[in-house]
Design a protein around this nucleic acid. Structure first.
Lengths: 147, 147
DNA sequence: TTTCATATTTGAAACCATTACAAATTTATA
DNA sequence: TATAAATTTGTAATGGTTTCAAATATGAAA
């Protein structure tokens, strides 16, 4: 059961260690902590957001290591990079194809679980599709309530 | 007839001048030349691509002016900014909602004229949509032929 | 455990797209 | 023509990301 596997791995050190190992990545202390952050937080964080939290546990960690680790995770398909704001890259532990929504009011990024028929088919206008990035921008449900 | 208006304005100095004036932008020599470039080239250029061409006609123009003008055009909805490559902003004279396709082989960016039902409706998951950026990445028709 | 080769981490410097800013220039108006 | 306002220019600053070489940690072999 895939969803059960996911639950077990979330947060626990043994879980993230296995995730790294089965991706062919040496599970160093720093990488484990960074992946743990991504599994525990579904907030599409920036490098700085990750660094600011992880440095509390590993005071000697450098920002370069965060960059290196994330680039490695992206390469091994453990993480999806988003460029929705235009100013910096955000990272999503959810690598299944899905859309994103950026709220202009609160700045939060939400996963949107919808399908694109063209992406599903694999082609548009005779062009072969490998990736789709669907970014909505607007006002989220919570901010709409606030008026 | 809108499409006919468009044809007339393409490239001609009087056309782009009217475009700027009706957008409430003072039609300076530099702005006219930059908008003319965008109307004549449907290649989703970067700031540098625009600068490199325009500087041939206006040797004294500065890159800052290109940035200033483009930011103004974006503000006045004359131009659409794309962040499809992740490294730099590209500009599209076509501001009607449409998707884009980036070819991983040749690097070209194509307009894709498809509709998103959620965008059309104005809402997803109860979130109010104001913008949609749909970016496909893959291999374009021409590069598929080359093998 | 000790040794050695390899991989990883670190911190500083470089890079590059973009913005900030103040001085110079141009434009519009009277 | 004179004056004020807007625009352009060039340089410097900013900020996210990458490069790189030295320091450190890791893993395998003895």
């Amino acid at each position: 059961m895939v969803s059960n596997m996911k639950k077990i791995s979330e947060g626990s050190t043994v879980g993230v260690k296995n995730v790294l190992k089965s991706a062919g990545i040496k599970p160093t202390y720093e990488r484990l902590r960074i992946l743990k952050y991504l599994e525990e937080n579904n907030n599409h964080p920036t490098v700085n957001m990750i660094y600011d939290e992880v440095v509390k546990d590993i005071p000697t960690i450098s920002k370069t290591t965060v960059y290196n680790s994330l680039n490695l995770f992206v390469e091994k398909d453990l993480v999806l990079p988003l460029v929705i704001t235009g100013t910096e890259v955000r990272y999503d532990r959810n690598t299944k194809p899905h859309h994103h929504f950026l709220c202009e009011k609160c700045g939060k990024i939400y996963d949107i679980d919808i399908e694109c028929p063209y992406f599903k088919k694999g082609y548009v206008d005779g062009y072969k599709i490998k990736e789709l990035h669907g970014y909505f921008k607007g006002i989220c449900k919570e901010c709409l309530k606030i008026k």
